[in-house]
Design a protein around this nucleic acid. Structure first.
Lengths: 158, 158
DNA sequence: TATTGTTATACTCTATAACTATA
DNA sequence: TATAGTTATAGAGTATAACAATA
């Protein structure tokens, strides 16, 4: 699959390749099953949109949270994103090693680290956000503006 | 967390424990991010609802497809569910070992195997379906019947 | 040659337990 | 005693490549 073909097709091309002559009535009646299919399709298109940046979804989430909460503690980022402390450690080390963020010991509580974006981190996030915006527009292509709002509202209400 | 508490709370209890004082405006504006959060919350509640059956989501999906397509080939199941051939092999061996389904060589094409449910498989699927129905009702608790239909329609339209 | 199913393998994500240093 | 962060590890889920049997 070429990179250029991604922009031409709806996100759920990843679902369209399924066997059409197999009955799946029960599964299709389940909101949870449909949500997972669509979420996975979103993730696939998202990953394709990030090719070249070297960024994975969780890394971008971290950069975004740090941007909106400068100086935030590492543990707070993990709690906000649902990432376990044990898994935050290597992720943060990776982002720090790539010079995308800086960690300094919080002098008020020397157990904690205070996190902020570097210039490179800000630039990377800006690049990723532009790609994500295009990815979202592509993904929601088949819905009208009104339908998109309704979908978000219902998802947030669940 | 006790098992009985699960039935009392909305599915997205798994999201409600997040840090409320951390700003996440960009992430919250993304349909893809919200879809993934909700899908993961559904999966967690689903897993809790299946405790005691020993069944995981993909196994139930397989049983359901076999029920609706008796004698279906193994490869067709995988294609319909998006499971790679290489990963179908151990899954099918596991379900066959648990006596939930039977595999016989397709005499018309001796490379393929024809799959069907055993009595035990039928009973297990019936049990799981009842649990799933309750799980879905619980998950969609905060939506009216009209809103549920709208949500499904929009998800299917994406 | 192509396809069905199998095996081995590897990579990512996620989850738990034990450790340190600080509080 | 509890908390912030780290390390090691193990379990799912997923992906590719190589193989045997059959078409």
């Amino acid at each position: 699959m070429s990179v250029t073909s991604i922009a031409d097709k709806p996100v759920l091309q990843f679902l369209d390749d399924r066997s059409p002559n197999v009955r799946t009535e029960f599964l299709n009646s389940l909101a949870g099953y449909r949500l997972r299919q669509i979420s996975n399709a979103f993730m696939s298109d998202f990953a394709a949109a990030m090719v070249g940046t070297g960024m994975r979804p969780v890394q971008i989430s971290i950069l975004s949270v740090v941007e909106e909460n400068p100086g935030i503690r590492q543990g707070e980022i993990g709690r906000a994103l649902g990432v376990a402390r044990a898994n935050m450690a290597p992720l943060m080390a990776e982002l720090e090693g790539a010079k995308l963020l800086e960690r300094i010991t919080d002098e008020a509580d020397r157990r904690a680290v205070s996190v902020s974006l570097t210039k490179e981190g800000q630039a990377m996030l800006k690049n990723c956000k532009a790609r994500i915006t295009a990815h979202e527009r592509r993904a929601m292509d088949r819905l009208t503006e009104s339908e998109r709002k309704t979908l978000l509202r219902l998802l947030n209400k669940i």
